[in-house]
Design a protein around this nucleic acid. Structure first.
Lengths: 195, 195
DNA sequence: CTCAAGTGGAACACATTCGTTCCAAAAGCG
DNA sequence: CGCTTTTGGAACGAATGTGTTCCACTTGAG
């Protein structure tokens, strides 16, 4: 209580333990969304009691994971600089950044409950930036005007999912998968005279 | 015991109840893969006891669902006549047929356990037909040679997933979604001089 | 070293689901 | 109509996960 600790987080020890639990949770839950807290604690190399100490209820842990996902998506979006350069290239940069989220990406897909919460209801900066980018691409004639903006978003995420699975299942390098993903995205969205 | 019943299935009454349970299971489990048997029974308008009477253990029900999925995918593949006509058009026919699977499609995605079992290990006729089609398209110059056959399959399923979600979430007609899906698939796979 | 902070394990009550059994009521069929 | 099949509900034991408390142990910072 004497010391507020490092930047709102508590002591360095606490921060590290918290991180270990969150990381383990991502890994374990992305493989099995119904995994028990015992499994998560074990994967984190920590006692189940300790998990409860940091996240009183399971829902608290899930909420924290959702928050983290949202934050990382936001950071990735910033890094992708969606307002700069040709729209299709910006979209590919975003794809690359999001691909780096790894297991967290899978978790978002496999556990819809993760995206439950007021945080996910509101339109985030990242959402707005992406929507703006897509509109820009359509108006600039870079992106096929027949592609509904909502569809483009679904498409983007679905391709990321496919790329991650492809890289995991087959004996394919991560970057081969990513390249196929980017190529597919680019071609699907490209404005062209294709019927 | 006197009568073997209608085609291996038992009495018509039993067949209908079994069907109701399976259908309800698809609907409920596609929304929440961890739903309890009570929920499934309720959705089927049936007592929990009855569910156990048809599927002694939960795993039996899951196995039956997996079997059904496999069968329907097989039937859809047959209907798509993959060996006929231009490869890209055949692929689109397959996409349309699979899209009709509806919630069952989502279930396959959300519950990896569904695809656990020896049935899913072996390469089915449908698998072979699809692989053959993709190879045919690549060799015939219809499909982008840079697209790894495995990737094409991942892409196909991912697009189906995206289309179904897009049709469900937004105020978009099912067929608008399907059309966007088909258009994206066609363009992504098309052989072209695109860099 | 010393003390506070942090941890892990055991034990507990509690809730939920599952799988089972039994029986009376309902529904199908001749 | 009667008989058989099928059903739904109640009740039970077992298993699993959860959330809590308590205490001895380790760790790390001063």
């Amino acid at each position: 209580m004497v010391d507020a600790g490092k930047a709102l987080g508590g002591s360095t020890t606490r921060a590290r333990t918290r991180r270990a639990i969150l990381d383990a949770a991502v890994t374990v839950l992305s493989n099995d969304a119904a995994a028990s807290l015992h499994d998560i604690a074990a994967a984190a190399g920590v006692g189940r009691t300790t998990v409860h100490r940091y996240f009183p209820e399971r829902s608290d842990l899930v909420r924290a994971l959702g928050h983290e996902a949202l934050e990382k998506i936001g950071a990735a979006t910033v890094r992708a600089r969606l307002d700069e350069g040709p729209a299709l290239q910006a979209l590919q940069r975003l794809c690359q950044e999001l691909f780096e989220l790894g297991d967290l990406l899978m978790l978002i897909f496999s556990d819809p409950q993760l995206m439950t919460g007021e945080e996910w209801e509101v339109t985030s900066d990242a959402d707005r930036a992406l929507t703006r980018l897509i509109e820009r691409g359509r108006e600039g004639g870079e992106i096929d005007a027949a592609m509904d903006p909502d569809w483009v978003q679904h498409l983007l995420w679905a391709l990321l999912y496919a790329a991650w699975m492809h890289g995991k299942a087959e004996c394919v390098g991560k970057y081969d998968s990513l390249n196929l993903c980017l190529r597919s995205l680019r071609k699907a969205l490209a404005a062209g005279k294709a019927a």
